[in-house]
């Protein structure tokens, strides 16, 4: 018992780790929220491509989603984090950012990390969006079109508002997954919470700093998880009403 307390809950180490992990918390938040927000338009685009009438739009989206979802994010990070700087397009965007630091980290690191996370998450969101849109009864689109609304307007005013309500819990679950996955950026030396706690752990040969990091992750994931189940229940109730 004492060993467990000493190895995982060493108060001295935790005290030492707290400010350092806390300082890295906003970094993890930026990667989590930023990556997710960027993934939303990407996921929507992919979803519409997958539902398109033309094969030329459909198959690139299908291949993209299959490849991204079928390979580990840890691997995608290794490939792209060091691979992106070889792409001319990336450098055009990155060049003006190279002199800027945020929270002690260079802006190009954020750029690369956010790009990778959003590219990954957009593939998952694509499937969430597509399933959500296709779960809206056909009659809704027909009613909208029969009133003279164009296809984009029918989507924007009739289909998507209903879809969002339905998929919001699933989207938030996807956000929780992405937020936890920001820890994988530790593998390419991005100073987010997991790496920050690892540095202390290595210095003092003790795991307690990781527990501190775990608490910070839980700070976000537990309330959000509760919110998801609350929203799912409410949704189940309101859909029951409508039927």
């Amino acid at each position: 018992m004492e060993t467990i307390l000493h190895v995982f809950f060493n108060l001295e180490v935790m005290k030492q780790a707290l400010p350092i992990v806390a300082a890295a918390f906003p970094v993890s938040l930026i990667f989590g929220f930023g990556g997710f927000l960027l993934a939303i338009p990407g996921g929507l685009t992919l979803a519409f491509m997958k539902m398109a009438r033309y094969r030329l739009l459909r198959w690139p989206a299908t291949v993209y989603v299959d490849v991204v979802r079928g390979t580990p994010l840890a691997l995608q990070i290794l490939i792209l984090y060091f691979g992106l700087p070889f792409l001319p397009i990336y450098n055009v965007i990155a060049a003006p950012l190279s002199g800027i630091d945020v929270l002690g980290i260079n802006a190009t690191v954020y750029l690369r990390g956010l790009l990778i996370l959003s590219l990954n998450s957009s593939a998952y969101l694509c499937e969430i969006f597509r399933a959500g849109i296709q779960s809206i009864p056909r009659g809704q689109m027909e009613a909208a079109r029969s009133l003279g609304l164009s296809l984009p307007r029918s989507m924007a005013f009739v289909i998507l508002p209903q879809t969002v309500r339905r998929i919001l819990p699933t989207m938030m679950s996807e956000f929780i997954l992405l937020f936890k996955d920001t820890a994988l950026l530790a593998s390419v030396a991005v100073m987010e919470m997991t790496l920050a706690s690892k540095i202390i752990a290595g210095r003092v040969f003790n795991q307690s700093s990781y527990v501190v990091a775990a608490c910070f992750y839980l700070l976000l994931t537990i309330p959000l998880g509760r919110l998801v189940s609350y929203m799912e229940n409410r949704l189940a109730e309101s859909e029951g009403d409508a039927a």
Binding site: G139, Q140, E142, A143, S146, L147, G148, V158, P161
Partner: peptide
């Protein structure tokens, strides 16, 4: 066709009201 449909009202068996 959108211009046409504006002048052609349709009522469906399942109502198809927008629930939101």
């Amino acid at each position: 066709i959108n211009k046409m449909r504006e002048h052609i009202g349709m009522v469906f068996q399942q109502f198809n009201l927008f629930p939101h």
